[in-house]
């Protein structure tokens, strides 16, 4: 329990550190939100109007004041409003975060369903035809950038065969079938490299587990091959796979940009990118804070799972 509380405290400190770094860096980075807003579409902005807008947006106050105001808001659970359209940051996150999470989970699910069995099989039949073909495919999957794969998928399924919509989003409640149809391609795109990663990691750690003495013991007990495989090989190989998977899931939180862009999936990466482009400080900081908070949460869950999977780490 003390361990848990300490972890939570560490998480909070980390999240605060992240928000501070981002807040300060953003103000150092060139680009003025007021000028940018008034320059949308490559139109020259009137410097006097820019100045007025800066005053209106509270950007003329000392940065320390701005930071204090922001911190005060965070404590009250208010992340402020967008500089662009005064839209509440929390509202935007509440709308978008579930979609990004859904996308990541769907992608991870596909990746695990493909990568885990394939990696195990390839390790068991190392050097065989399947191993070679899938290892090659994994390299291919890792190599082709997601925006190329996305474009090709859209070109094939939407533009040529016209069996899939060319990206977009429909709420599940509105049309479940269409929702899942629209989820398919971006989830596949997410799973593209993730499944290759899971495959490689599984293959490596199953190979490693296979050579362990306890597998020999399990066989010496006369266990069936399936049982040896599941209980003594795959079970032990899971820990490193989980480490990598957790790492990637965390990274994906803010890293679905290209997929969201290519398939027009309205997740949280797009507003983040757009907010950075527009130097929409409260939106950027708010989203980053959410992402890092979630990331730390995933970490915590991973550590707990880790402890569940590998009792040795529990001791310390």
């Amino acid at each position: 329990m003390r361990w848990f509380l300490r972890r939570i405290a560490t998480c909070l400190v980390l999240a605060w550190a992240v928000s501070l770094v981002v807040f300060m860096t953003l103000h150092v980075v060139p680009g003025d939100p007021a000028e940018l807003l008034l320059s949308t579409g490559g139109i020259a902005a009137d410097p006097i109007a820019v100045k007025e807008l800066r005053v209106k947006l509270g950007l003329e106050r000392p940065i320390f004041d701005q930071y204090l105001a922001f911190l005060g808001g965070v404590i009250r659970g208010d992340l402020g409003t967008s500089l662009v359209d005064e839209y509440p940051v929390t509202k935007e996150i509440a709308l978008r975060l579930p979609r990004t999470l859904e996308l990541i989970l769907a992608g991870t699910l596909i990746a695990v369903l493909l990568g885990l069995p394939a990696g195990t099989y390839a390790a068991l039949h190392r050097g065989g035809l399947f191993d070679r073909i899938v290892s090659g495919t994994a390299a291919l999957l890792l190599a082709i950038p997601v925006f190329v794969v996305g474009t090709l998928l859209v070109l094939l399924l939407a533009q040529t065969l016209k069996v899939m919509p060319a990206g977009g989003y429909v709420p599940f409640a509105q049309d479940p079938v269409k929702h899942l149809t629209l989820l398919t391609l971006p989830a596949i795109a997410i799973a593209k490299s993730l499944s290759a990663v899971v495959f490689r990691m599984t293959r490596a750690s199953v190979l490693d587990a296979l050579s362990r003495d306890f597998v020999r013991t399990a066989r010496a007990k006369g266990l069936s091959p399936t049982r040896v495989l599941l209980r003594h090989v795959v079970r032990n190989a899971l820990t490193p796979v989980l480490t990598v998977l957790g790492l990637h899931m965390g990274t994906l939180l803010g890293g679905t940009v290209l997929v969201e862009y290519v398939f027009n999936w309205p997740g949280m990466s797009t507003p983040l990118l757009r907010a950075v482009e527009a130097r929409d400080y409260p939106m950027v900081v708010g989203i980053v804070l959410t992402i890092s908070g979630l990331f730390l949460l995933i970490n915590l869950i991973m550590d707990l799972l880790y402890a569940a999977l590998d009792p040795r780490t529990r001791a310390a």
């Binding site: 980390l14 999240a15 550190a17 992240v18 770094v21 981002v22 860096t25 953003l26 980075v29 790492l247 965390g250 990274t251 939180l253 803010g254 890293g255 940009v257 990466s269 983040l272 990118l273 950075v276 950027v284 980053v288 992402i291 890092s292 990331f295 730390l296 970490n299």
Partner: peptide
């Protein structure tokens, strides 16, 4: 090092 992970990679790159 976990602090780095808290940054969305694209944001890190952008900044």
């Amino acid at each position: 090092v976990d602090v780095i992970l808290c940054f969305p990679p694209i944001l890190l790159a952008l900044l």
